[in-house]
Design a protein around this nucleic acid. Sequence first.
DNA 1: GCTGAATTCAAACGCTTGTTTGAATTTTGA
DNA 2: TCAAAATTCAAACAAGCGTTTGAATTCAGC
Lengths: 207, 207
Amino acid sequence: MSRPSEYTRNNILKAAVALFAERGYDGTSIRAIVSKARVNQAAINYHFKGKEGLYFEVLKVAFEGYLRFDNFDPERLKDMSREEALRSFVYQQLRPLLARDQMIRYIRIFAWENVRPSKVLTNFVKTGAMPFLASATELVRRFLPPGTSDQDAMCTAISLMGQCSVFVRNREQFTKPPFNLKIDEAFVARLSDFISELALKGMARQL
Amino acid sequence: MSRPSEYTRNNILKAAVALFAERGYDGTSIRAIVSKARVNQAAINYHFKGKEGLYFEVLKVAFEGYLRFDNFDPERLKDMSREEALRSFVYQQLRPLLARDQMIRYIRIFAWENVRPSKVLTNFVKTGAMPFLASATELVRRFLPPGTSDQDAMCTAISLMGQCSVFVRNREQFTKPPFNLKIDEAFVARLSDFISELALKGMARQL
DNA sequence: GCTGAATTCAAACGCTTGTTTGAATTTTGA
DNA sequence: TCAAAATTCAAACAAGCGTTTGAATTCAGC
């Protein structure tokens, strides 16, 4: 595979990421992609076997890009005190608030995937989400009473993640009137402190 | 307007709710709707002026249906003790977990709206969400220290709502393996207790 | 029953969609 | 340099899309 054809391929991918993020799969046409990528229409079938193949490649690229950004390592949490681990986990969950450019597009693509799951990669994306939840469950167990049921621990973990994801999910809205949140590193740091402190106290049943 | 034509109109609406919920606006064709509704294609333009008009009517119907289901009354919270009010609010936020049939479709339509906001009704839906957040902010202020900034109070309220909405949003997923949550009235009641207790303790800075 | 309005109908319309085709061009490796 | 493979190209293809059209049918009110 030569460099010129790699340019073609990457241009298509880049254009597709942008358009799929903005309009979703059904709302994005092949002609819009090739126009944006400045390539010939047949190239999509040649390089990706068609629209669907392109979409799956985009999902794969988005997923891998997200993992690189996220740099999540569940093992590191285990070496921290439970308070540190909690804070670190919350910060990790809120980090996407600081995402820029391509990473924002990846996050938007996952939002589309949430309402319109694609069959083949459904497990792929879910597999990606599972470490978070497993890690969160393990983490909250360090705070909860020893006899806490699996379901209760999991619901605690889910609600902890929900405290963070609501900000990430509605980020665009919260930066506009009437909210006007200024989302920068300082805000994310303060919010991480805030949420982990709420959670810490909330789970402090018997200290 | 006569009864036979009302049947036509309602059949279209009902079919459209189902299909827009399942496939979104772009993924749903006029032909699929009229086939499901067993009406003639021109009826959509006659009754709703076209696909877009039908979609807006569907949004309107969904919104009104949701409000009827929700039966939210911010004033009632004010007459309760703050603990009662908190529990009541959380339960209210989790009630959609018990939604059935048509209400589930309405909720799915709002999920689509979240990733693909339609221009005209964006304010309409947001206006609907605002009472929740304003009410939640007012509620958490009853727990927070008197000098808490508006932004901090609002972030507390958002995180409270996030604890609830994560369950509603991912309800389908949580009822399947590996989660297998059995979501019934009892579960919702227990979860309401659980989340409001977590929140209550989390906000208990100076009692 | 009659007339005008409302509603439904079948099909056409003009455009868009993703895939395919075969030729042209570029790249690769001997 | 040459031949084969890879890649790109322009255009065609078949199907689908939402809107429109004008006729047919039904409804409503006198």
